[in-house]
Amino acid sequence: MNSASPPDLLTRSGSGLLNWLHGWRAVFRFAGVAIVESLTPRTYNSATRSVVLKQIYFTAWQILPRFTLFAALLSYVLIQIVVDTARNFGLADYALEATIRLLVLEILPLMTALFVALRSGAATGTEVVLMNIHNEIQAIEAAGVDPNRFEFIPRVIGGAISVLALTAVTSSIALLIAYVVVYGPQYWNLPDFARVVAHIFDLPTLTILWAKVLAFGLAVTVIPITEALAAPKKLFFAPIAVLRGMVRLFFVLMLIEVLSLALKYI
């Protein structure tokens, strides 16, 4: 039986670590380029605008009714559980604040990002890896079209806008449901409700929330695209590249969530 000698093992571990670090460097580099390009006006020509619109259509608009319905149902169930539990423990005064903190600040942004990652992140990764394998990226480059600006940056912009928009829609609906569950279907408790909301959404909380959602939005497209572009141009590497992208994406989303919790509560 052959066993790897310690120097071989060390070389392989070192090589694995280097590949892992190169992967992260590529992710951060592409994220940086995407942020700079998205803020550069010359990025937005007729071709890139149409890709951004298509990305928003397929990522957000197409799924909006079903996703909103699901988010409303989940919000209603969770709000009901939190409100009932709080009342049972004599903490009814804190029920509204607890539900808003739980849903709007944590669960809904994370759920939206995971949903977009599963639906669009996987699709984007698969499309880009196949484009790369079939040489389509080189073909459009040869036609004088910058693939980064035409194919990838617009997808990142569209993905980020979609996550922001879906989070905003589901959060607004959750706030509405929370009001109805806590106060009933009337409007004279609106000033109390507004006071609680204003107390929760102070400037630091809002800043962390928007930074988190923006990071989610960038991650769901940047990571699958980076992994897809790094894959060797062999068809049998396509599923491996998509798998790697999705695993890395999952850990990044969780890491962003943990980081935002740490910033808020520790």
Binding site: N45, S46, A47, T48, S50, E127, L130, M131, H134, N135, E136, Q138, A139, I140, A142, A143, G144, V145, D146, R149, F150
Partner: peptide
Amino acid sequence: DSLPLRANLSVLENVAIVLQYRRNMNY
């Protein structure tokens, strides 16, 4: 043969994107 068309675009779109991108023409 090694420079294929973009598979998710029609022939018309494959040709038009060159003008959209390089001349900023509308679609």
